[in-house]
Design a binder for these strands. Structure first.
Lengths: 225, 225
DNA sequence: CACAAGTGTTACGGTTTTGTTACCGTTATA
DNA sequence: TATAACGGTAACAAAACCGTAACACTTGTG
């Protein structure tokens, strides 16, 4: 499931977008001003951001610029009012990926959103290989040496999360947020436990891990081949 | 040959559409108000619906919504007058597949219609085999070992849905949306119940399922051979 | 009307999964 | 080397999850 962040202060517009995308099966997060939007984007790392330009507190351009400054590369579609063509150019320079001019057809917006996500999905494969392991996200099947090995839901999510970010040290907080969700009260020690069980299932030698490496004081890092 | 249903009250427009699509070799059904259109759609199950928004008796939005509520997944292309779009369409979860804004070029409309029909034809096989089972979608007949076995409507829809997406883990929400429709309040536990009865009808050993596999926390997966 | 078939909910029970805790070895630091 | 912080892991209790039988409700039919 994809997560969208919509940053928009007009209640009617917001409601419409929220309903339509919700109906389409997206998880929709909303923010009604720039500051809130910025924080939410940083915390939750949505798959795509729909960003109005006219916003209280921090305007859309600024939000966009700050996000890019933080190396957030999430696709951003900006909503511009009619006649702001010059702004469009500005927006694209700032790092937005696309813009849609109000009033727009919801179909068109949905089409563009889906185009981005499809592209992203193509880039982010639904299959991963490492060692003698193979993980198919769509069918949720994990095999090792051709034998399917059962991963529990948590284990599966965690492995996916690692595989999506190979080579990066992931903090326990990041892992918690992505695997457990944004509002749990789970101890970070639980992560360690799951890492152990995961290692038992995927590592050639679980006591001398080769794929899931510990980063002391930080968390873990998935090291491809 | 494909059947089109055109729901449109303006005689001139209707005439034009009817002629053009007739000329292109489609079977064209027409309705001049929402009520008639709705009934015709339910009775005849056309391959695609062209639906005007401004209609006597029941307006286009409502027709669209009611059709979706009845789990009719026929592609619907809506004809909107200029300026009707953003606000109204945004606020409603109507479920149309495409919009064309009047005035439009008939060529464009034809192109879109054909795009939908082509896509649909590519996607939809009408027969499936697995194990000693055979399902014929068109005639709605299911046989096992040559013996026809009665599937209830719900069971049938669900099996079809599984067969259309072999090997993929389907979430309960996806199943609900496709088998029960988009606006029901059916508990996802009901899915489980139907899976049980389906398994009893199609599995060699219902207690150790081979085709309909459980994907914990997610839903089910149909595993071909 | 009685009856049968289909559908959706509920509740029970077995199984799996999950989160915490405690104990222990390892590592960084003074 | 002593100490403290940190991560690995076994064990356990609680929770979540799914299969399924039982029941109630609706609808269609003779």
């Amino acid at each position: 499931m994809h997560t969208l962040l919509i940053i928009e202060d007009d209640p009617a517009m917001l409601r419409g977008l929220q309903d339509n995308f919700g109906f389409k099966g997206y998880r929709v997060l909303i923010a009604v001003d720039g500051e809130q939007g910025l924080n939410l984007a940083l915390d939750t790392r949505p798959d795509l951001i729909i960003l109005d330009i006219m916003l209280p507190k921090i305007n859309g351009y600024e939000v966009c610029r700050l996000l890019r400054k933080e190396k957030i590369e999430t696709p951003i579609i900006m909503l511009t009012a009619k006649g702001q063509e010059a702004d469009v150019v500005l927006g694209l320079n700032i790092g937005a990926d696309d813009y849609v001019t109000k009033p727009f057809s919801i179909r068109e917006l949905i089409a563009r959103v889906e185009a981005f996500l499809r592209r992203r999905d193509d880039e982010q494969p639904t299959e991963y290989h490492f060692g003698d392991c193979h993980l198919d996200v769509a069918s949720r099947v994990f095999t090792r040496n051709g034998q399917t090995v059962n991963l529990t839901p948590r284990e599966f999510e965690m492995l996916c999360y690692f595989l999506e970010r190979p080579g990066r040290a992931l903090t326990r907080d990041e892992i918690l947020n992505h695997v457990w969700g944004y509002s749990t009260f789970v101890t970070s020690r639980s992560i360690d436990r799951f890492v152990t069980t995961l290692r038992n299932k995927i590592e050639p030698d679980p006591h001398a891990p080769r794929f899931i490496l510990t980063v002391r004081e930080i968390g873990y890092r998935f090291q491809p081949e």
